[in-house]
Nucleic acid binder design. Structure first.
Lengths: 149, 149
DNA sequence: CTGTAATAGTTGATTTTGTAACTAACAAGC
DNA sequence: GCTTGTTAGTTACAAAATCAACTATTACAG
């Protein structure tokens, strides 16, 4: 039963999940309480805020998020007047999404919160930790999923 | 619209979530395909495999997981004969959980997979990245959730 | 003792996600 | 033109997560 050479607390998928959940809680509280948004909602909002006009599938690719999740997030954001849809006249399958003034305001507000939150999170880390963390996370986030027998 | 001084791809809660999801996919595939387990299931299995006899709430505390999630995971694991429950005779509210031989076998198998997976993940990182990552994640995972206005 | 609070764990109702199938519009071969 | 395939996005149904309420048992104050 007792085991050698394996520590759950050091297993990356486990540790990453714990850190991710723990360090998103306070931010989640804000976008949920202030704007009734879910995780995918704020991500869509931020993509539109940062990059301007995008289609649902462009957001899906950038955010590595399934199209049904995006579709439902856009639906919620549209109902609440944060986002506006516009059909592309050349290709009528495509919808261009933009933030409404209300959406822009929410984005600007949350972006400030995010900025402060980021600072607070980084504050607890040493230079080396922050640097190694960022660099490693970027690799891990981009890496192709491994293969297993 | 265009924004300065904020990068979504560097926002820790976002980057962490991406890295966490991406680096758990292949492992998830294994415990799902081989044993039909969900995320909480393998976590419970590993806790019992690593630390021996535990109660549901002890696992909940260690894994920072809500008791209903644990309860349902234990239910699934018990149905499939990976785990056995035993009432505590002193305090009959408490149930002690242990792995069955079948549970131990599954644990041993998955632990080996985890070990190899961990090695593969770490392989893509430099020494500094791995060190900074681990140290930073541990802090982030333990930190008290921040406070916001 | 007895009533009230606390703890371990489960259950049920609601919300959210995941998977697959679907509609609508375009593209390309023939 | 017409068939076949592809892409954008939605919808339907099943699986899973969340949150609150619940049972059963113990603790403890008076």
């Amino acid at each position: 039963m007792k085991d050698d050479k394996f520590e759950l607390a050091l297993f990356l998928p486990y540790l990453l999940a714990q850190a991710a959940e723990n360090s998103s809680l306070a931010f989640q509280q804000v976008y949920k309480d202030r704007y009734g948004m879910l995780r995918t909602d704020w991500r869509v909002l931020f993509h539109l805020g940062l990059y301007g006009r995008l289609t649902a599938s462009e957001i899906g690719v950038r955010a590595k998020t399934h199209k049904t999740k995006i579709s439902r997030a856009v639906q919620r954001l549209t109902e609440r007047r944060f986002v506006e849809r516009a059909r592309d006249e050349q290709d009528r399958r495509v919808e261009h999404l933009t933030l409404t003034p209300q959406g822009l305001a929410a984005y600007a507000d949350l972006r400030e919160v995010a900025r402060r939150y980021e600072a607070a999170l980084t504050d607890g880390l040493t230079e080396q930790e922050a640097a190694g963390l960022r660099s490693a996370l970027t690799k891990l986030a981009k890496a192709e999923p491994q293969r297993f027998t």
